[in-house]
């Protein structure tokens, strides 16, 4: 493994860490449940991708690389499904989105009961 790859890996891990922190900050800061799902989405798509890419550049063996790609593919397939299931369950249970000041002033489609 050359130094160049190690630098590239460090850069990917740094970007990934920054995105993870961003997601966590959004998760703490956003006012309602649906906005927090979006913040989770940042950490689950791009941050996971960058961290796993950074790890992938660190290995010189084929087997760990295949497994890292598998993990990435699986996270990318499952996380949207999980967040849709969460949003649907919350919507059906009567949780409605709020705007910044914590009021329920978000306009909803009129066909909704």
């Amino acid at each position: 493994m050359s130094t160049l790859w190690l630098w590239a890996s460090d850069a990917c891990l740094l970007i990934g860490s920054f995105l993870l922190l961003t997601g966590a900050l959004g998760f703490l800061r956003f006012p309602d449940f649906y906005a927090r799902i979006h913040a989770c989405g940042v950490t689950e798509t791009l941050a996971t991708g960058f961290v796993l890419l950074g790890l992938l550049l660190r290995s010189d063996d084929a087997m760990p690389q295949v497994k890292l790609v598998l993990i990435l593919l699986f996270v990318l397939f499952s996380s949207p499904t999980a967040s849709h299931a969460l949003a649907k369950a919350a919507w059906n249970a009567g949780v409605r989105p709020r705007d910044n000041s914590g009021k329920r002033r978000v306009s909803l489609p009129h066909t909704d009961p």
């Binding site: 989405g41 940042v42 397939f77 849709h84 949003a87 649907k88 989105p97």
Partner: peptide, 25 residues
């Protein structure tokens, strides 16, 4: 629907016969 969920900022809440219920930031 999964592509909408994968791009952060847009989220599919419900799926019906010919429309999706979407929440965006």
């Amino acid at each position: 629907a999964n592509s909408i969920n994968l791009t952060p900022g847009t989220l599919t809440i419900d799926m019906e016969q010919d429309s999706l219920l979407i929440h965006t930031l």
